[in-house]
Design a protein around this nucleic acid. Structure first.
Lengths: 143, 143
DNA sequence: TACTTTTGCTACTGAATTAATAGCAAAACT
DNA sequence: AGTTTTGCTATTAATTCAGTAGCAAAAGTA
């Protein structure tokens, strides 16, 4: 599970970890939708296969973007939570959303509107709000 | 070459186009390093194979992130240039660089320093500077 | 003008990754 | 006690990726 980076370029290093069609969607599910369990990730509209989900969760855990744990009152469910490293991906996700909204909407009529989330009004505030909201959720779960 | 999007999520749509290990590196080569030819992309330290480079260039062209043309005084070289849609990926790249610098440096001792570029001092100015610089280069090439 | 080099690819062959489905053990619910 | 839920693993097939070789057209050189 040890990573070998292709080069010293910061962008290439990030892509060595997150450069695939699924990893960032799992981070999205966690950060934006508050999803925490295998079942919840499986239920996303993109339809990730269980084998890929399993391997991605292990990979993200190995790269310290997420942690895996169990709650004391539930021996069955695994709870996956973003680490600070993972939470700090929020600005990347925000810029992707803004780019997509502006440039891809015309190619995908089914794209969700982001206007209600307020990204295009004050992206820094909205991004920080999402991060703090997530941190609060983690805190209330783990105490 | 027509894209079928997995869902209406703006993040998923972006990953349907750019979610692989190479596409964004090509955009980086163009935007940050001013690379324009097949040869120049091939020479990047990550070592993309010609077949993959060829398919990615076609893919990016089909998705209107880049354009392919020849200059009047050179019948041999193809010149690949970012469209506005591609240039607007700059903020995404900036946030990736900042995240990587902060969170991945400890795992990759060979990572370049970004301090000289000034990203961490005024990211908006630096990002806009890169974009305007690229636009000027395109303008001076095509008139 | 002929020869060599450069450029931008394509073709080919494995290797690796991904996708889709089935299934299963432990926990939890009824 | 029986059923359902959860979090996976196993299996197989399809697709993509990586690495190398090679080739045609253009351009540079003698």
């Amino acid at each position: 599970m040890k990573n070998t980076f292709r080069s010293g370029c910061p962008i290439a290093c990030t892509l060595d970890i997150l450069g695939d069609k699924w990893s960032l969607l799992i981070v999205r599910d966690m950060l934006v939708q508050g999803k925490k369990t295998f079942k919840e990730f499986s239920s996303s509209p993109e339809g990730i296969a269980p084998g890929i989900l399993s391997s991605r969760l292990k990979w993200l855990e190995g790269n310290e973007l997420i942690s895996k744990q169990k709650l004391p009152d539930n021996k069955k469910e695994n709870i996956y939570l973003l680490t600070e490293k993972g939470i700090e991906l929020a600005p990347v996700i925000t810029e992707i959303i803004l780019w997509s909204d502006k440039n891809l909407r015309k190619h995908n009529a089914a794209m969700y509107s982001i206007s209600e989330a307020g990204f295009n009004q004050d992206k820094v505030k909205v991004t920080e709000g999402i991060q703090n909201n997530y941190r609060a959720m983690v805190h209330s779960l783990l105490g």
